[in-house]
Design a binder for these strands. Structure first.
Length: 924
RNA sequence: GCCCGGGUGGUGAAAUUGGUAGACACGCAAGACUUAAAAUCUUGUUCGCUGUAAAGCGAGUGCGGGUUCAAUUCCCGCCCCGGGCACCA
């Protein structure tokens, strides 16, 4: 009987579907385990073999946990709102809703072929009104909340109103406007429009005017993590700063908790580093410098700077303020007015991209000075774009001997440099050390800089000219997009006041819209729909939410996907709790993962769920690269030269479809038919063969190196495909795809099949009990495979199976008693073949619900070991020695060996090292 | 520039706590079966040297040093590759 994988896999995929084999319910009698994949954006390109890597790993782990008796939640869905569908619609005139559905059908059919154990009854689609109803509902929760800094948690905005009525905002400083201070009386006398304006500055989801990343080509704003080197992550279009009214998430209020939460989760160090750096916490001081020039108004008598190095205050040679700094107009001296204006104009003309590409040293002197509070020295105030308005106070004290940027600036503008670190400063470059002893530093003289930091902070606070301050690099996240294909906001504007709609009005459905051209004044396409726009005496918000809105909470919806009255019942979220294992790529390090961590914390603070970190453990799968093939066309000809001879010609390299190449050998006839351009190609061959060049690069359509999992499954079967993806190497690692290597895994599966079936004789597995040697092989394998699976080392687990099959074949083991246990442990990796054989050998029930076997240690007890015996660390012989042997026994045995005697040359050894169960080393 | 990963045969890789480097595969070579092919099986395969063989000797985990009886593993310095951040004061 042959192994007919196509029929077997089709049969079981249908049977499992019919029997709802993967349906999971909230069963409190079993321990739960939640395994989650980052759900895909259903792009038109479909899946290539790189995509399922993480899905296969999580599927294996889910099935393993299920066999171990866990109630496993393993859902899948689609992140189906987003820019590409909209762009596709603009280019091809197909409505996003239609192209998205089509893409999802394609994804689904590809996923189904691989045999995943998803409970499809729990599928979510972020663009489905049943889903985004709750995205909008969570938005309302964010809108109706503020962050209580003392309690470090989100609270209802109504609580804040109570506080304002009683005491104003003196004890609850405004996160959106540091200068905003009002009393209870002032609050109570204000009109409702004034009050709304104030509350907006506290809300966790708020509307404000700010500098945003505007992408003209995409016609929308982008979040910081969607902009890479001044261009859009998607499409690579230029991005400029623009002032726009926008919705934001006040994620900065959660900076501290997002940081602290990292200590409680199991993410890779690099992932934690990325998030930590993005949050960018730093400790330092805000220091007030008195402005010395007479031409300043009383309200601007001080310049506030932020520094992490208050110990260097005697080394301050100039101040630098950002071009956007509010003091510029008041402090600029009449003589410098023109120069300053010209400079500001120049700065405005430069795009973000230009600033990043050419880091020129630019700046202008304001004409004003401030005074060093400790020695009264006058310090010139400069304006330069290298100081960022959005960070700290938008002003710095420049210490050229200790800071590279300050040093270069001082050099460029010939500003004299004060040396406060003696020998540590060589005059050619700044030295940011903290190890120097301070000089020229007044009361700090002689102190080690690292000690002087605390000392100077104390002094500044004592004198009331400065205070300790913690800053974060992270900014509030832009939360609106001027696009169509996203969640509409449940907001109506009346008299410039944002009115939240009642949760009973949800979902606010996205209206159908055939023409997706932008609306007027950088508004989204929804602004073109007057009948939709006008609502209840006001105007609807026309922006839509960004892609990360729906993905910030989808893991909760899977727990209770059909719920019409809640986003997720508390009973469901209490039962399933945190995601135990989350698998996905690193590209979401600072976007999705941070937002979704924040939303979880807010929902926790407001009492909707019982945990405040969504993902207990995160595993990042690597990317699978494509192995491209290249042909070389002799320039200006139709001749193609084989790779080995190409250096003799001037050639252009062309990517060729990998399916036209066997190894490196080109199918020349196939190549001619591939594209009309090549139909009359001629070849300069090596002995009649055309060899292609190769290159490892991203798997992508334009390199013609995409391998479709459908083709692999058709040729080798899903079970082989699954195991081969795992066998390629560690899941976390990037690695190239090589279709040839799959033969080894396919051979293994067929060899496994032959333990049960013979081509002529049919079933050869028997009821005869297995011998001890076979059991030993099996339990050794079980131990290895289980340990490896548990630690996500799937590649070595596959090799464990291979060793097991090889050894059982050698032992001629066909015992059903043993092999049925083998079937169970192989099931997570190769479910179809295992279920088929399980039924063939007459087992009742599905193998999916079998119980995982337990290692019987009695078969693994060893009485002796093959010890490597080394001389001076170099292994010379192997000796079989009883495990109970003592040091003296071992020494006697070793010294008797002629091979060892040869090395000793008659002399006694210096020492004999004996590590039980490990090795023996003779030192001479 | 800063912060993370990583560098092991022709290739993918293994070595979990400092203890036999290269498991398991691919590829390649030789052979068996076959009219032939596919499939399957057997043997060999880190490199160099000696040997008909069995075997032996030497080198070897990016480079240079160190600690140790023993280093792919720990320490110091450097080189290269991948990823992230980047005027964050």
């Amino acid at each position: 009987m042959e192994y007919g994988f196509s029929a077997i896999e089709k049969k079981w995929q249908e049977a499992w579907k019919m029997n709802n084999a993967y349906r999971v319910s909230n069963d409190p009698s079993k321990p739960k385990y939640y395994v989650l994949d980052m759900f895909p954006y259903p792009s038109g390109a479909g899946l290539h073999v790189g995509h399922p890597l993480g899905y296969i790993a999580s599927d294996i782990f889910s099935r393993y946990k299920r066999l171990k008796g866990f109630n496993v939640l393993h859902p899948m869905g689609y992140d189906s709102f987003g820019l590409p569908a909209e762009q596709y619609a603009i280019e091809h005139g197909i409505a996003p809703a239609i192209s998205t559905d089509r893409n999802i059908d394609n994804f689904r059919s590809q996923l189904d072929k691989i045999g995943f154990c998803y409970d499809w009854d729990r599928e979510v689609r972020t663009s489905n009104p049943n889903y985004y109803k709750w995205t909008q509902w969570i938005f309302l929760q964010l809108f109706d909340s503020w962050f209580d800094r003392k309690a470090q948690k989100a609270r209802s905005i109504n609580d804040l109103i109570v506080i304002f009525k009683a005491e104003g905002n003196t004890n609850t400083p405004c996160p959106g406007d540091k200068k905003l201070v009002f009393s209870a009386a002032e609050w109570n006398s204000g009109d409702s429009s004034k009050q709304s304006e104030i509350l907006m500055k506290y809300r966790l989801a708020f509307c404000g005017v700010g500098e945003v990343n505007w992408c003209e080509a995409l016609g929308t704003v982008l979040a910081n993590d969607e902009v890479i080197n001044g261009v859009s992550e998607r499409g690579g279009h230029p991005v400029v700063k623009k002032k726009l009214r926008q919705w934001y998430l006040r994620i900065t209020e959660y900076a501290e908790r997002l940081l602290a939460g990292l200590q409680t989760v199991d993410f890779s160090d690099s992932m934690k580093d990325m998030q930590t750096n993005w949050i960018g916490k730093s400790f330092g001081a805000e220091i007030d410098f008195e402005i010395a020039a007479a031409n300043t108004s009383a309200s601007a008598s001080h310049l506030k700077v932020y520094t992490t190095r208050p110990d260097t205050i005697f080394g301050v040679d100039f101040m630098v303020i950002a071009p956007e700094h509010e003091l510029i107009t008041t402090i600029t001296s009449p003589e410098q007015k023109k120069a300053v204006e010209e400079y500001l104009e120049y700065v405005n003309s430069r795009s973000e991209r230009e600033r990043m590409a050419e880091k020129k040293i630019t700046g202008v002197f304001s004409g004003a000075y401030c005074k060093n509070p400790f020695n009264g020295v006058l310090i010139p105030i400069w304006i330069s774009e290298y100081v960022l308005a959005g960070y700290g106070t938008g002003a710095i004290m420049a210490v050229p001997c200790g800071d590279e940027r300050d040093f270069k600036f001082a050099q460029h503008f010939s500003i004299p440099i004060t040396n406060i670190i003696g020998q540590f400063f060589n005059g050619n470059e700044a030295n940011p050390t903290k190890e120097a002893r301070l000089e020229n530093s007044g009361f700090l003289d002689g102190l080690l800089m690292s000690d002087a930091i605390t000392f100077s902070l104390d002094k500044l606070e004592e004198l009331g000219i400065g205070k300790r301050q913690t800053n974060y690099k992270m900014r509030d996240a832009a939360f609106s997009r001027q696009r169509y294909w996203g969640e509409p906001f449940p907001i109506v504007w009346k008299n410039d006041i944002a009115i939240p709609l009642s949760s009973t009005a949800l979902p606010i459905e996205l209206p159908e819209l055939s023409d997706l051209k932008p609306g007027p004044d950088a508004q989204g396409p929804l602004a073109n729909l007057p009948e939709w726009l006008s609502y209840d005496g006001g105007a609807r918000e026309v922006n839509t939410m960004p892609g990360y809105a729906g993905s910030s909470w989808y893991f909760l919806r899977y727990m209770d996907p059909q719920n019409d009255s809640e986003f997720c019942s508390r009973a469901a979220s209490d039962y399933w709790g945190q995601v135990d294992l989350y698998i996905g790529g690193t590209e979401h390090a600072v976007g999705h993962l941070l937002y979704s961590r924040m939303w979880t914390k807010v929902l926790f603070d407001l009492g909707h769920i019982g945990f405040d970190e969504p993902y207990k453990r995160l595993v990042n799968q690597g990317k699978i690269g494509g192995d491209s093939r290249l042909v070389y066309r002799v320039r200006n000809s139709k001749q193609f030269v084989s790779a080995g001879l190409k250096d003799d010609y001037e050639t252009d390299e062309i990517h060729v479809d990998v399916s036209l190449v066997d190894g490196f050998l080109l199918d020349m006839e196939g190549f001619k038919k591939w594209k009309p351009d090549f139909s009359d190609a001629t070849f300069i061959t090596e002995d009649g063969e055309y060899k292609c060049g190769a290159r490892l690069e991203k798997m992508s359509k334009r390199y013609f190196n995409v391998v479709n999992p459908d083709d692999i499954v058709e040729k080798y079967g899903a079970d082989t495909f699954r195991m081969y993806e795992m066998f390629l190497g560690p899941v976390e690692q990037d690695k190239p795809w090589d279709t040839k290597g799959i033969e080894g895994v396919h051979r293994f599966i067929r060899k496994f099949w032959r333990l049960f079936f013979d081509a002529e004789k049919g079933l050869v597995a028997t009821q005869t009990p297995a011998d001890a040697a076979s059991w030993k092989v099996f339990y050794k394998m079980l131990k290895k495979v289980e340990e490896d699976t548990a630690r996500f080392s799937f590649n070595t687990a596959v090799s464990g199976f291979m060793i097991g099959v090889n050894e059982l074949t050698d032992l001629n083991c066909h015992s059903i008693e043993l092999l049925k246990k083998f079937l169970i442990i192989l099931t997570p990796y190769a479910p179809h073949i295992c279920e088929e054989i399980w039924q063939q050998i007459g087992e009742v029930g599905s193998i999916l619900d079998a119980s995982y076997p337990v290692v019987d240690e009695t078969y693994l007890v060893e009485t002796s070991k093959e010890y490597p015996v080394a001389v001076n660390g170099k292994t010379r012989i192997i000796l079989n020695i009883d495990l109970n042997a003592t040091q003296a026994d071992v020494e006697a045995l070793v010294l008797k060996e002629p091979m060892i005697a040869k090395w000793l040359e008659g002399k006694p050894p210096k020492k004999i090292i004996f590590v039980k169960n490990k090795m023996i080393n003779v030192v001479i």
